[in-house]
Design a protein around this nucleic acid. Sequence first.
DNA 1: CTGAATGCAAAAGCTTTGCACTAGG
DNA 2: CCTAGTGCAAAGCTTTTGCATTCAG
Lengths: 142, 142
Amino acid sequence: MADQSKTRMTNQRSLILEELRSLKSHPTADELFIAVRRRLPRISLGTVYRNLQILSKQGTIRTLPDTKGQMRFDGDNARHYHVRCIKCRRVDDLPGRPVVHFEREREGKTNYRILGFKIELLGICPECNEREKPERQGQVRQ
Amino acid sequence: MADQSKTRMTNQRSLILEELRSLKSHPTADELFIAVRRRLPRISLGTVYRNLQILSKQGTIRTLPDTKGQMRFDGDNARHYHVRCIKCRRVDDLPGRPVVHFEREREGKTNYRILGFKIELLGICPECNEREKPERQGQVRQ
DNA sequence: CTGAATGCAAAAGCTTTGCACTAGG
DNA sequence: CCTAGTGCAAAGCTTTTGCATTCAG
């Protein structure tokens, strides 16, 4: 990992990284673009995409798929878990680490070569929860 | 759930559903379109998308985000878990159910209203594994 | 200096949508 | 019948890419 070979730390790249790390919502490329543009008005969306791709290939940042197809980005490449809002789709970090006991024998039943797992909580963020108090409280599945 | 009001079971819809249920790879809309077109050559991609949306709104099928933004669909709406191939991105069902012990107190540390969780294994499917035997065996994170 | 990175704009996916026509119930 | 659903094509989003120019190392 960390393939820094022939990579240049441009002003754009460092601002993108800085902004991504400061945002806690795991922004989409466009949200990040808007944020960075406040400080560097001439930056282009293409540059944001190119940098996000490079940084993620390097292992400096992480990507996570949005529920609706769009990509989201995470400036923290340390192992941690997420809570996802099923209403506004924002993603937050889960403080601490959930203890997961996997039934290891399960893996044997798959003919995949298992490399790891992914887990995240689903819920409604404080803002959305406030916005719609009287709602049915169904369990989310999957 | 199951909002069948004013919904018609057209030939297209039932073929889409049938094909989706028979495919084990959790296909994208386009893969499904190609499959259904073999039986109904005049069907359009738009119809596939519209039906997938309706069926998923009804709760008849499920959607899952692809690692690269695209959507995938699952004809089985019973609770079950998935293994995802990090190479070809196909998704398979995990036989049985993994036992997950969540550290419940964790949820208290989030200000989200927690409704559930999502877990899936990551790995390399038999086909891809065969295709590239001599590779580094890194642990996948997140 | 040199080529990696940028801005711009055009193009390429994937998905949605408007419209006139078809067909399910 | 009546209107949900269809095929087709156009439009909408998100993301990628070609190209001349800029700038980091």
